[in-house]
Design a protein around this nucleic acid. Structure first.
Lengths: 166, 166
DNA sequence: AAAAATATGTCAGTCATGTTGACATATTTA
DNA sequence: TAAATATGTCAACATGACTGACATATTTTT
């Protein structure tokens, strides 16, 4: 892994940009395409995966929070969410303070499915982290954090760092 | 940027996975959504952008090469490619050795459009790189390279590193 | 020279996931 | 009581993927 192609100083600004952009595109694609087989078995897509993931990470989340986090419209969410509820992967409880709210939770079934989907991805990512080394992982996180849109960075980082660190 | 949330050793494997996955998702989304405004002005989408980008990076590329690189079907490519050709952003030359081939090139108009689309993205990425620091950028590249699918990593890295290094 | 393989393009239809705007219902707040 | 809020649903549409079949030109193989 000591390769001139990773030496940042040997790149012009334009080269840095191209490399970052292309690597991000291909790595994202290869990483994200993993769970598709499992998902297809259940008739679900990536949108369902996302919902399962974020509800799993934020139990009791409100629908409005999820909408904002995913930056999609009510209608888009509605389709996937209602399927997941129908099939028993997600449970919607009525808010205790505000009875208009629907609080979202994974059912046991939903948790099982999520674990199954994540299995390959987790393996894939942890192997990549090991291969690149801890120092690189730190850099990876720092650059990704810096790539977040300025107007929602703080909120996203708060969510990402939830239940982490010491 | 010295934050306990970037200290890799303070994370369990599962936490590392969650953080990597979520940051990758949000950063990719925020990065990729930038050029949409420019594209919409022209009636183009992300698929058009990708084609412009890769043809720009690999002048004289064959259609089959582009298909393989993008991992999409002929039909999918056909739609965007023919629009780009019609509107004068891409030129198709008949192969000199093999007259069945169509070699793809950006026209001046296509190059101008690509530069315009890339303008914001380039700015965005270079700012993120500067903010994170050179060491982090190296880590970013290393992790992304390790995240590539094993069966096409070499080919992708060869393309990404084309015309780079010393 | 004829047959097979290859590179490209196109037809028709389908699917997943996003969008908009309008409207309905229940519930809370002013 | 009236207004605002949280959620859900309807119909219609756009993008960008997919499949499988078929057509054409050209090159390679037999």
């Amino acid at each position: 892994m000591t390769d001139i192609f990773f030496e940042v100083e040997k790149h012009s600004d334009h080269q840095k940009f191209l490399k970052g952009m292309e690597l991000l595109y291909f790595a994202y694609r290869d990483f994200i395409s993993w769970p598709d087989d499992v998902l297809q078995t259940y008739g679900f897509g990536r949108a369902h995966h996302r919902v399962l993931h974020f509800v799993g990470r934020n139990p009791g989340m409100k629908v409005a929070e999820l909408l904002k986090l995913l930056s999609i419209t009510k209608q888009s969410l509605s389709r996937v969410l209602s399927t997941l509820v129908e099939k028993g992967h997600i449970r919607q409880d009525i808010g205790d303070q505000d009875r208009r709210q629907r609080l979202l939770f994974l059912t046991d079934q939903g948790q099982t499915l999520l674990d199954k989907i994540a299995e390959h991805q987790k393996d894939h990512m942890l192997k990549a982290f090991e291969k690149a080394g801890g120092q690189s992982v730190e850099g990876f996180w720092k650059v990704l954090s810096a790539l977040l849109a300025d107007d929602n960075r703080d909120e996203i980082l708060a969510r990402v760092n939830k239940d982490m660190g010491e």
